[in-house]
Design a protein around this nucleic acid. Structure first.
Lengths: 156, 156
DNA sequence: TTAAGTATCTCAATGATTGAGTTAAAGTAG
DNA sequence: CTACTTTAACTCAATCATTGAGATACTTAA
């Protein structure tokens, strides 16, 4: 683990590092969900609803979370019943529903992300602007690559 | 997304990037699990069993995945029934079980990680040794920080 | 030997997810 | 305008993973 010589970095270990980080995020989300009487799926859905640049629809959520429409409806029912979101029918195409988050969800998100954000900030503070740019570029590249993987399921 | 000036990087966006990456990993794992008749939990467990430096125990897995012992037992039953793992009783402490993965699991992992690994390599190739070291340091720091978060649940 | 502690497993109850099918609204062709 | 197709969201019975409480078996310390 410490054995990276100055000439190159062990490429394989990147996969392990990324896997570990993902697993750790999941574990935290899982724990958080349990503490707040939600289901892991609900937390995932809430994050998606939050991060969407404009109000997301159930279909889009279905794609993002890779669930069936039945599961999405149930998940949204739970979130709506708990006062986290609201369903709004589109005026022009009345088949589609837009998902808006409410104050309760915003507060919940704050509670969830505060310690996580503190942790991330602790890490980011150790890096210079140049390094941060490198990391950001890396993350963006990974996200593009993962999107490509999603788009090309044939290669799996 | 492109708007980072040369003087500093938007710190908040790191959280979004990380969240997106985690979600994308999850979606891929979920999809893969479904295609291979496994459950998302089983895939998570298999990854943990793989990444463990020495054979892991059910208890440890319980901590890692944040599940109850009943769920772990059921998960291991499924994996064992499908021929992915084997339970081995410890000779000295016969309450303890060690989890070994079998050939079927190794093949499954190869199928799972090959496209993912290709994608990661595509990304890594774009960076120089110095930059790779920076990214690795960042990931390690994040993992330490996440571990710390796990250890201190009181702050949540 | 006894008591306490630990690792794993069992099982009934709960409840999220699936998969098939339904409803309603848009688009499209004739 | 009418019939056909497509799409968005929902309903519901069946399935099956997870929980939570407890049982079992082994270990360690007193």
């Amino acid at each position: 683990m410490d054995g990276d010589s100055e000439e190159g970095i062990d490429l394989l270990s990147f996969a392990v590092r990324l896997r570990r980080m993902t697993a750790e995020f999941n574990r935290i989300a899982h724990e958080f969900a349990h503490e707040h009487g939600l289901h892991p799926t609900d937390v995932q859905a809430l994050m998606k609803i939050f991060d969407a640049p404009s109000p997301i629809t159930p279909s889009r959520l279905r794609e993002e979370l890779n669930l069936t429409s039945g599961a999405i409806t149930a998940c949204l029912d739970r979130l709506e019943r708990a006062g986290h979101i609201r369903r709004v029918r589109d005026a022009h195409d009345r088949r589609v529903v837009h998902l808006h988050y409410l104050d309760a969800a915003q507060e919940l998100a704050a509670v969830f992300f505060r310690p996580l954000g503190r942790g991330t900030d602790n890490v980011l503070r150790r890096f210079g602007p140049e390094e941060l740019r490198t990391v950001a570029t890396f993350l963006d590249a990974m996200n593009e690559e993962l999107d490509a993987l999603r788009a090309a399921p044939g290669s799996r």
